[in-house]
Every structure is written in structure tokens, then in C-alpha cells.
């Protein structure tokens, strides 16, 4: 294999994911990538792909990107893996970024490989911590084995160094960053290299509701399979506590709660002040997404449920009794407002 001259590669790219709105993880990456460019001296470049996305390009500048690259064409709307992959790949080959960060959403994890494989880039999955060393090598840390292990993945000899980043782990970039620091960036429209005639997939229908964002919630009531399809007791408790509803994957798979509210390895990472786990067993893939919570209360009728090891306070009992009682007690006391 021929050695690659890594010094030809510069800049940190952040992919801005657009489906009507911008996915929150994109702005989280933009803010976190600033900590990398502050060390390396690289430009922070936002990449916007979609149709009629000028406003989003402006927003990326306002949130602190040094430059924005825009690929604007109807072929990119709605999202499909093959045109996105082909366009992104062409841009990477032409411009040689050193680091490329993509949100670890279903979309990001879908097309990232279509960029990394043909460019022979290193692609690290589902990253929760990033840093660069003195040589500009990305140190991408990610949980593995269901979260028992935190592995640091490096890519020394190949470029770009790509990573998909788990949503909800970092703080989002300030929408007025540029105003406050009087930065001025540039927006560049790039050539669109994909043609509808070459596409090998077609979106027949897309049904998407406004998605809930549980990652910023200060209080969460999360439900597990123990609710057996009856959300009522948990919803009432959530309302009494002024909390957001969240769920395990088991509940989402049953269709009882929307997937945007799933907590865990293949869902969101949350860090509320209060996390009430209702009828949740405490599987490692779930705990991984909630163990940054400040205080955890577990309600489960099985005294041996692992969730009690991951809770500060637990009560062994039937959730259909405990939830209404707790709801009533909380209502009697009156709650304090969430400090936002």
C-alpha cells in the first residue's frame, strides 16, 4: 500500500443534517468541534446538503463555523444514502479534510460508510468523547460491549479521520456566537455531482412528526415494558413532576412511545436532575443512556431487578399502585419550577 501524505489534509468538517429542520446533534458537533480547531488552528467548516438550505448555511455561520460548504439540489430531498454518499465523497476527495464529524443519527450512520469506504477513511462509530493530540490525531472515545468498556479509537495513517457522534452528549452551539465574537465567515456553493438518473433508491413515502427532544430535559419519567401498554400512570406522574416522558427500547419497539424518546445505546443520552425509571429492568444498553442523571429513582416489582443497582432510591412495588400514589403526594406538596 502506498503511504498517504497526511499533511495534505486540513480542517475539521461538521455535517449539518437537515430534514426540514436541522437535527440538534449538528449544532452540538459544531460547538464541540470548536474545541478541536482551537487546538489545531484548522478552519471549522460546516457542510450543508439539501434543497433550499441557504438559511441554514447562514445559521451555521452565526453559530460559529469559519466557512460553510453548500450542496443545494432537489436530488438531496428527501434524504437518501446513495446521493448523499456520492456528493459527500466527491467533496472529501476534492478538498481533503483532516477530520469529519457526523451526527450518529440513523441518517448519519446510514451514509457515513458510503464516504469512508471509497476514500478508505477511518470511521469510528457512535463516539461520546473527542479530543486531538499534538499531532492532530483525533482521539475518538466510544462505549463498546454494551457500555462496559470505553475504547479510544485512532486513525493514524488514513485520512480523513471520520466519526459518527452520539446525539445529546454535547452542548449545542450558541445561535449568536458570531455576533458576540464578530466573526465573519464565508458561504461557498459547491458543484453538485449526483444526477437523479444514477440513483439506485427512491423514497416512496415519508411520515415524520415533530420529534421530541428529551436530551435537554431536567426531569424525566421513563417507562419500561412493565407498563404493558398502559402509559396513563406514568404520564400522570410526569405531568405532576413537570417531567418529559422517555422510554426503553422494548417500549419503543412495541410502538407505545415514539422512538425519539428512547434512552440508551441506540437512543438518546440524557442527563436530567431527576430520572424516574418505571417498570424498567435496567439492561446495560439502557443504563448507558441514563447514568449521567443526577438522582435516579426506580419503581419495579422485582426486588432483584438490576435497575436498583443503578438507582439512588428504589421502591419494590407494583407501578400501577406506586405511580398514582406518588402522583397524588407530589400534587399535594406542589412542585418547584424547573430551573431552566
Amino acid at each position: 500500500m502506498t503511504e498517504l501524505d497526511t499533511s495534505e489534509y486540513a480542517d475539521v468538517w461538521v455535517f449539518v443534517e437537515v430534514h426540514d429542520d436541522v437535527m440538534p446533534v449538528s449544532w452540538e458537533l459544531l460547538a464541540e468541534a470548536k474545541t478541536l480547531t482551537a487546538k489545531t488552528g484548522d478552519d471549522l467548516v460546516a457542510l450543508v446538503i439539501g434543497e433550499d438550505v441557504d438559511g441554514i448555511a447562514e445559521e451555521a455561520l452565526a453559530r460559529g463555523a469559519d466557512r460553510v460548504l453548500v450542496a443545494d439540489d432537489p436530488v438531496f430531498e428527501p434524504y437518501r444514502a446513495d446521493p448523499y454518499g456520492a456528493q459527500f465523497r466527491a467533496m472529501v476527495e476534492a478538498r481533503k479534510p483532516s477530520i469529519v464529524l457526523i451526527g450518529g443519527t440513523h441518517t448519519g450512520r446510514d451514509f457515513a460508510g458510503r464516504v469512508a469506504v471509497p476514500t478508505h477513511a477511518g470511521l469510528t462509530a457512535d463516539v461520546t468523547e473527542i479530543d486531538v493530540d499534538d499531532e492532530g490525531i483525533l482521539q475518538a472515545r466510544r462505549p463498546a460491549f454494551g457500555g462496559d468498556i470505553l475504547a479510544t479509537i485512532v486513525c493514524e495513517d488514513h485520512r480523513p479521520q471520520m466519526a459518527t457522534i452520539r446525539p445529546g452528549v454535547f452542548e449545542a452551539a450558541d445561535p449568536n456566537y458570531a455576533c458576540e465574537t464578530t466573526l465573519e465567515g464565508s458561504i461557498e456553493r459547491v458543484e453538485v455531482v449526483v444526477d437523479e438518473a444514477d440513483c439506485i433508491s427512491e423514497v416512496l413515502e415519508r411520515v415524520v412528526d415533530a420529534t421530541a427532544d428529551i436530551t435537554e430535559a431536567e426531569r424525566i419519567v421513563a417507562v419500561g415494558a412493565g407498563i404493558e401498554g398502559d402509559l396513563e400512570p406514568a404520564l400522570e406522574l410526569a405531568e405532576a413532576l413537570d417531567a418529559e416522558l422517555a422510554a426503553t427500547r422494548a417500549v419503543v419497539d412495541e410502538g407505545w412511545v415514539d422512538g425519539a424518546r428512547q434512552v440508551g445505546q441506540t437512543g438518546k443520552t440524557v442527563r436530567p436532575d431527576l430520572y424516574v425509571a418505571v417498570g424498567i429492568s435496567g439492561a446495560i444498553q439502557h443504563v448507558e443512556g441514563m447514568n449521567k442523571s443526577e438522582t435516579v429513582i426506580a419503581i419495579n416489582d422485582d426486588p432483584n431487578a438490576p435497575i436498583f443497582d443503578h438507582a439512588d432510591y428504589g421502591i419494590v412495588g407494583d407501578l400501577f399502585d406506586v405511580c398514582p400514589q406518588l402522583t397524588e403526594l407530589v400534587q399535594e406538596r406542589g412542585i418547584l419550577e424547573v430551573a431552566r
Binding site: 468498556i149 470505553l150 475504547a151 479509537i153 447514568n291 435516579v296 443503578h310 439512588d312 432510591y313
Partner: peptide
Amino acid sequence: PTAVGTMETVEPVERRSE
């Protein structure tokens, strides 16, 4: 292209478990 650098065991978050 990628290599696993280090692997750390994640210590479980300390909880009161009361």
C-alpha cells in the same frame, strides 16, 4: 484505517441504591 488504542473499563456510576 482505525485501531483500538486503549480500552478502559467503565466504572459503574456510584449510586446510593437505597
